[in-house]
Amino acid sequence: MTQKLLPILTVILALLAAWYVAVVPMNIKSALTTAERAGADVVPAGAKERRDLSAIGLVATNSFAIAATFSQDRPRLPAPHQVASELWKTTVEKKITSKRSLVFHAWITLSATLLGFAIGTGMGILLAVGIVHSRAMDMSVMPWAIASQTIPILAIAPMIIVVLNSIGIQGLLPKAFISAYLSFFPVVVGMVKGLRSPDRMQLDLLKTYNSSAPQSLLKLRLPASLPYLFASLKIGIAASLVGAIVGELPTGAVRGLGARLLAGSYYGQTVQIWSALFMAAIVAASLVALVGVIQRLTLKKMGMS
């Protein structure tokens, strides 16, 4: 266990250290402007003169401002502890029902994600079963399913939101629709692969038992497809989350992680953007990890891990 943990921890610590170091040159210019306004002596004087100078040079000649780069109000690059403290303030220190709580916003996005994911996965599995059992469906739909993975479907998100809004469907459902769409195709492609994965030998064996198609499906194909399904589910749930976030952008929504990202971007609230991003990352990681845990438990129970 330590064998795997140590390299990972080292990489993470290295990344964090690099982040801290990068904060200084990124924020030095605004830090110097603030310092100058407070009366400090900056070399060279005047924000205009400094604008085109190299950040690293400015750090070298104005090292007194280094500490200030870590606590800027609207930093170009917030320091890790600034992001952490903002995260703490908007999650633990706020009531979950408050409109300023990041947990509240995360739940808004998460609920759309989960609903969409469930729908997309359900329909995807159904279509996959249909494709495997009907040659016409296979030859008509599969090429489109595969081709659709090369098309930037996410670009349609604004339109879907607006169209559904205009016929009265608002809020959770349009976002869930986008999420469903994004998880649908990976699940179809993966599930078809999985349902077809048993080798010739296994299928022939069931033939000698005179097994019907539904029986073969239940006893062989579905169990065999589970590893493939779980791989697709991991991709699908991450895609569903992205879909829900992007779904919050077009209509200028005020609730949800995407909305927080957009608001932070409009009002120049950098730390808010970063904390929303980290929250989205945490949600994504938790979802994928959850699917992974379910995968491990299920496959272990079936002796397939």
């Binding site: 996410l154 991450a238 989350l241 976030i245 971007s265 953007i273 991003l277 994504a284």
Partner: peptide, 16 residues
Amino acid sequence: FIAALPIIGTAPILVM
């Protein structure tokens, strides 16, 4: 891990 995250969320930061 990072590949599974909603990287699109970095867009506002990068635009900035």
